[in-house]
Amino acid sequence: MSLLSLTGVTCRFGGITALNNLTLDLPQGAITGVIGPNGAGKTTLFNCITGAYRPSEGEIRLRGESLVGLAPHRIARLGVARTFQNIRLFPSMTVWEHLMVVQRGGGLRAALAPLGLSGAAPRRRAEQALERFGLAPFRDRLATTLPYGVMRRVELARALTAEPSLLLLDEPVAGMNHEEAASLATLLHGLVAEGLTLLLIEHDMGFVEQLCQQVHVLDFGTLIASGTPAEVRRIPAVIDAYLGVEG
């Protein structure tokens, strides 16, 4: 069953067509990759799904419900979370505060209660995220003062505290070393095993092959190939547009 489906999604800015008649389905509980050269429309795709941009044409549905025209926060509350290509953490907040800030539920009273007393559920969720992402040692540090790899984990953990059903990751391993990328891959596999659906933009083909069951290749806003990582690797158009000839 597909969780998210895009039909004929087109996004134009003036004379430029950033996304051209894109149709694709994200199966529930799978990891899907989007690859393509810079400027291919990958981040535009994320921006259309999350409501940051409104597509010029086409339909985007989450569990059959249309997302087109909804405010970004509504889309987020329907279960779409994301991380950003350039990490976007809140400079004034500690790691712990990042894990509390986007949580919902409990109504206004829970939202107004002091953080220390703000109900068991949000605190438990934040504690779990702290544990799971190895952030406990940094709990009360300002997030933007931490090493790059840790900031990436904070961003991911923050996105997950909103309890999304679909998580969009924009270049999650950019700037990470091999070890960090490997541990992230393990983490992501764990999340998917719990039912999360992932869509990720990534340039690191090794990471894509390790994680994704399905890959879509974009070039100049057009979908030029889809398939398993091994399949798209052999398609001449993909090699020309993006991968290049090895050796």
């Binding site: 926060h73 907040m93 505060e97 800030v101 986007v102 939202a111 002091p114 953080l115 703000s118």
Partner: peptide, 23 residues
Amino acid sequence: RSRLWLALNAVRDDETAARLLGL
């Protein structure tokens, strides 16, 4: 000290990110 106040500060720190995260 509340979550709501954190949300206000999130708007101050990075409004776009705050919105895309569901605030």
